[in-house]
């Protein structure tokens, strides 16, 4: 300890103190401030970059989700539309069928009625013709019958028999 105090050099202490404080101040201005600022800026930049990358990833995720949702909606809409179309088709077909059926029935009805009327007409004509024919036949028969006197009498008699009083 004695030696230590004896060896203590005030000059060295003085120079060390002055030079060291000057060194701290100079380095602070020319080195530490710019270096620490640059490092801080870089670290903040990295943090920001990471953050924005994360944001971009999230946005991307959102976008994909959106896309998927839209796709899904579109698919549902398509299905609905297809279903509607099918229904419409079916209804059109069935409507058409009904109408056709009705039309056909009508036509058939008309045909039937025409046929009926034609039939009636034909029958009437046939009846007329039959009446004429029978009259002719009857005339002819009469003529041939009435040519014989016996026969005329007989006929009169038959007829008289038929007449009931």
């Amino acid at each position: 300890m004695d030696k230590l105090i004896e060896q203590f050099s005030l000059g060295l202490f003085f120079w060390q103190l002055i030079l060291f404080v000057a060194l701290v101040l100079l380095l602070k201005k020319f080195a530490w401030k710019p270096i620490l600022n640059a490092v801080n800026d870089r670290e903040e930049g990295i943090l920001k970059a990471l953050e924005s990358a994360e944001n971009a990833r999230k946005e991307m995720q959102n976008l994909t989700a959106d896309n998927e949702r839209i796709l899904k909606e579109a698919r549902i809409e398509r299905d609905v539309m297809l279903k509607e179309a099918r229904e419409m088709k079916e209804s059109i077909i069935s409507e058409a069928k009904g109408e056709a059926h009705a039309q056909a029935t009508k036509v058939i009805e008309q045909a039937k009625s025409t046929i009926e009327s034609e039939k009636h007409a034909a029958i009437a004509e046939i009846k007329n013709q039959v009446a004429e024919l029978s009259l002719e036949i009857a005339e002819k028969v009469m003529r041939s019958e009435l040519s014989d006197k016996n026969k005329q009498i007989k006929l009169v008699e038959d007829m008289l028999k038929e007449v009931k009083l």
């Binding site: 120079w15 060390q16 000057a22």
Partner: peptide, 30 residues
């Protein structure tokens, strides 16, 4: 009263200059 530039003072100055040189160069490289 002795304020001599002794060997140690010379080296303190040299180290100071060395540090100034190195670290200001480093600061410039940023």
């Amino acid at each position: 009263l002795d304020f001599s530039i002794t060997k140690n003072v010379v080296f303190i100055i040299l180290v100071g200059l060395f540090m100034l040189l190195i670290f200001s160069r480093m600061a410039n490289s940023y």
